[in-house]
């Protein structure tokens, strides 16, 4: 149900550390907004497209992933071309597409596990300050992946119950039972986690 969007491979981007990839993406995301010349933006777009389609994604898969973002971008930029100028819309198109393609390439070359590990490592300084518990991120992540299928089953059961009584399936009558049914398990799950000692109490605080 929840498969990551990464593809296996051994391209330079696959081997690059997650931190470097995210840092490049962040720098690019800020830097490209300082350029409005097409002499910079078009090459950036071509380069990003080149990287995106050499990550091991098939052309069909690569294009189908882009479709929803592309749709939004095109709609918004047609409006921009009409409201501002065609030139601005063209610049924004190449800038946005360069960023979207590079971001897509990072997603395609990073496994979910590696990404979470990196987030946990990036949180270590805050962990030492006692602001967050870095290990909680991984635990929470695991919980979400574990419970999505269960909650989806709850949803289907509630939907079937509606049908059995000849009721229309409406968000309003689905939401409350779905949320209560799910959240009332929180105590049991929390007890199970504590009983297994997954979250060791820290000696220096939380006493």
């Amino acid at each position: 149900m929840l498969n990551g969007l990464n593809v296996e491979g051994s391209t330079p981007l696959h081997r690059m550390s997650v931190r470097t990839k995210l840092a490049i993406l962040l720098v690019l995301g800020v830097a490209l907004y300082f350029f409005s010349s097409l002499f910079v933006l078009v090459p950036a777009f071509v380069l990003a497209a080149g990287i995106y389609f050499t990550t091991g994604l098939t052309v069909r898969d690569g294009l189908s992933r882009l479709k929803p973002v592309l749709f939004t971008i095109v709609i918004l930029l047609i409006a921009t071309a009409y409201l501002a100028s065609i030139r601005e819309a063209t610049e924004a198109f190449f800038r946005l597409m360069a960023l979207v393609l590079f971001a897509g390439a990072v997603t395609a070359t990073t496994t979910t596990g590696d990404f979470i590990d990196e987030i946990t490592r990036l949180l270590q300084p805050l962990d030492r300050l006692g602001l967050v518990r870095a290990a909680d991120v991984g635990l929470a992540f695991g919980l979400v992946l574990r419970f999505v299928p269960d909650i989806f089953n709850h949803y289907q059961a509630i939907r079937e119950a509606h049908r059995a009584r000849g009721l229309k399936v409406r968000p309003l009558t689905i939401l409350a039972p779905l949320i209560i049914l799910t959240l009332k398990d929180a105590d049991t799950i929390a007890m199970a986690i504590d009983a297994r000692g997954f979250r060791r109490p820290r000696s220096d605080r939380n006493r």
């Binding site: 909680d136 635990l139 929470a140 992540f141 919980l143 979400v144 419970f147 999505v148 909650i151 779905l178 949320i179 799910t182 959240l183 398990d185 929180a186 799950i189 929390a190 986690i193 979250r199």
Partner: peptide, 10 residues
């Protein structure tokens, strides 16, 4: 923590 994760799953 569990409530947060469960709500994310919802």
């Amino acid at each position: 923590l569990v409530l947060v994760a469960l709500f994310t799953a919802i």
